[in-house]
């Protein structure tokens, strides 16, 4: 599965992992991971994300809008090229990018 989500053992953190290409093909699967709002911090693990395009950026922003500004959302383990795309798009203002 290109999109997977798992709660940490103390149930305080939801990790969403995205494998391969992060683009519009994942729009439904990605939305499903946060559709049911939970009182947790969210972590998007991009270790296995090879490429992303502007549609993925849009999906991330939609997630931010749905969960609200106060929810902690981190984007972690980005490869350099992915990180650059996030930085170009000034996503560090909206997400905690590690």
């Amino acid at each position: 599965m290109p999109v997977e989500s798992a709660l940490s053992s103390d149930k305080s953190e939801l990790t969403i992992s995205i494998a391969g290409r992060f683009d519009f093909e994942l729009v439904q699967d990605f939305r499903a991971t946060y559709a049911e709002k939970q009182n947790v911090r969210y972590t998007i693990d991009m270790r296995a994300t090879e490429h992303m395009d502007s549609s993925a950026l849009g999906m991330l922003l939609n997630m931010r809008k749905t969960l609200g500004e106060s929810t902690k959302i981190s984007i972690v383990n980005c490869r350099p090229q992915i990180k650059k795309i996030l930085t170009i798009s000034r996503f560090d203002k909206k997400f905690n990018i590690e």
Binding site: D53, S54, L57, G58, L61, N62, K65, I88, S89, R90
Partner: peptide
């Protein structure tokens, strides 16, 4: 602008 979930593709291309 920062909140738009569209129109970012061209910005990406311009920067890269």
């Amino acid at each position: 602008d920062d909140n738009d979930s569209f129109g970012r593709g061209v910005d990406l291309i311009k920067t890269l």
